[in-house]
Design a protein around this nucleic acid. Structure first.
Lengths: 343, 343
DNA sequence: AGCTAGCAGCGAAGCGTTTCGACGGTGGCA
DNA sequence: TGCCACCGTCGAAACGCTTCGCTGCTAGCT
């Protein structure tokens, strides 16, 4: 193992000088700086993480707490995790992966041991039980998802209310008047996942505004479940011509079922999905969809936590920081004008 | 922050005693042990990770290097990552997430800085460029995926050769004689991903053994791409009655396309998938599939690395350790006897 | 009784950094 | 010419933990 003392000896300076060259916290002459840099490279020196964390009281690690559930669409989680990791590296930080089964205690453990300087929480519920711990322990955190009371916290999320409204507007603009909203399984709503509730709220409010008749049905996302859901919808509202789907697993089955029931998309019915663009492109027809960037979510969360860390180091009081990412509607081939009234 | 000295004072012992109680490396009387444990709990003591790592020269962290590519089925990666994280926690370890875009340098950085005690590499290619670094730096590692030369390394993977053979056997047993294998995009084969090549090899060998005619076509996994692939297959071999699919994205489209072309599954054609059971269950009809547990993969990798770490601490030379997980065939509703020859 | 062995606990020396205060040397200003 | 300020560098003191060696004890032998 090569230590800072080895580098110092090799460059003919003291180890504190090496440290200052590396951190840039004090002025060092150009010449010395270069000599040190060369030595660092030649010896292949990497500062010992433990020693650094101990002395500087900063681990240069952020923890990322991921949900265990699989009712969230997994690729999105992964995309966020990777975006977080890469963004953190840009700031010289690494990412520690912890799972939500550790719960609030996990947050406490990480904070108390100084393993991480801050925590990014995914899949935050409206009244998340990890939040009190955050406040009590004074842990720097960024939340992905908007809790009920974001006071003095940093949060980032898609603007699901806007996303829901966008769906209602698009279908209303096309002349549809009977809409069905196919959502996630009922469990998601029961545990008050913000994204599900907010999308529905945004959709519902805008639908009412535009005078649409609509209904909402939850769906587990399997073929059978989708078949059942669709059958119920068509039984309750045979005149339904617009579908909003916020459930990645239900999309494929829905399209198949519509086709086999003799309904053509988009001539007879329109389908608009709330999902990643990449997924929307994979179906036939390619789906009109409302999307937000998962990567952006991760990047913003990292920015927020970095800001908090530097603020805390400077002794500033952290303030609220709430970022909502504007969703984008991409019109593809699955939505079209409402069919003329058959009478 | 509460330190070991605080605990020692509170319990009326020296800090070394506290340390020994916590680590169990020396005998401590029952009574003292209890007093210390109580103090730990009352004060909410968590050892400082940096100090611990520095003194013990062990960070109690393993790094997990995940691929950036999305041509691997993402949920499987996530499942592995989570399994690794939870298994590591069982051993008192945390998991650091690093992305493959750091490449071999990333491995070096982690090892040289002592940030992690070992590395788990995902998506290992046959001649992976990270492996030389592993050997040169003497980094403890476990590979998920089998490289060409696993000498003195620990590796775990599904037995893809057996999986491929299982597919061929199942279809042969049902009397099919013309089979098409729909694989991943050509890029996957070009970069010599072991799982793709090995599956194909296993299938091909067994198919020949059983006297099957077969062809292999790569497919990008979108609807259009699947349509093109299927059209080519049916043009080249109109008599094809069996499909093996190793491409999660192509499954949905394939089923839809078969249906719209008037072929019924499983009466006219049989489809067998190489994918997670969970996915196989989501389609209609539910798919006969060959699977291995992603969780098991993660768990075994953690076991391997823990064994290596304790062996290294004891001064033992690490030996090869190659684990291949036996795949399982689950027969569902998408495969049936080959139709009688129409003549 | 004298000796060894082992148990419980203590004290102190690191582990490799960061960072604070100090110290020559140089240049600008009066 | 004398003084002060600043620049570039150094030495040493933390940071909080692990671990080695030591010291009294008690117990078991001979």
């Amino acid at each position: 193992m090569v230590t800072i003392a080895d580098v110092a000896r090799h460059a003919g300076v003291s180890s504190s000088t090496v440290s200052y060259v590396l951190s840039g916290k004090r002025a060092i002459s150009e010449e010395t700086r270069n000599r040190v840099r060369i030595s660092v490279r030649e010896l292949g020196y990497h500062p010992n993480a433990g020693a650094r964390a101990l002395a500087a009281r900063r681990s240069h690690i952020v923890a990322l707490m991921v949900p265990l559930r699989t009712d969230v669409y997994v690729p999105v989680m992964m995309e966020i995790a990777i975006a977080v990791t890469m963004a953190a590296r840009q700031h010289g930080y690494d990412v520690l992966l912890i799972t939500n089964d550790e719960g609030p205690d996990g947050v406490k453990r990480i904070a108390a041991s100084g393993l991480a300087d801050g925590v990014i929480l995914m899949d935050v519920e409206l009244d998340d039980e990890r939040i009190p711990v955050l406040r009590a322990q004074g842990v720097q955190a960024a939340l992905i998802g908007l809790p009920d009371d974001p006071q003095s916290l940093s949060c980032v999320d898609h603007d699901f209310i806007a996303a829901g409204a966008l769906c209602a507007d698009h279908l209303a603009d096309l002349g549809h008047s009977e809409i069905a909203f196919i959502g996630y399984g009922s469990g998601v709503y029961h545990r008050h996942a913000g994204y599900a509730e907010r999308t529905l709220t945004g959709f519902r409010d805008q639908a009412e505004q535009r005078g649409l008749r609509f209904l909402h049905r939850s769906c587990e996302g399997t073929y059978e479940s989708t078949a059942g859901t669709l059958a119920r919808i068509l039984a309750d509202r045979p005149g339904t011509t617009g579908f909003v789907v916020q459930n990645e697993g239900a999309i494929g089955p829905l399209l198949t079922l519509l086709r086999t029931s003799g309904r053509t998309v988009p001539e007879d019915v329109s389908v608009i999905a709330l999902c990643q663009d990449q997924l929307a492109e994979q179906f036939a027809p390619r789906l009109t969809a409302v999307t937000g960037s998962a990567q952006e979510l991760g990047r913003v969360a990292v920015d927020q936590i970095m800001r908090r860390l530097t603020a805390a180091a400077a002794g500033d009081r952290p303030v609220d920081d709430r970022v909502l990412l504007t969703p984008v509607l991409t019109v593809r081939d699955s939505t079209g004008p409402a069919p003329r009234q058959q009478s």
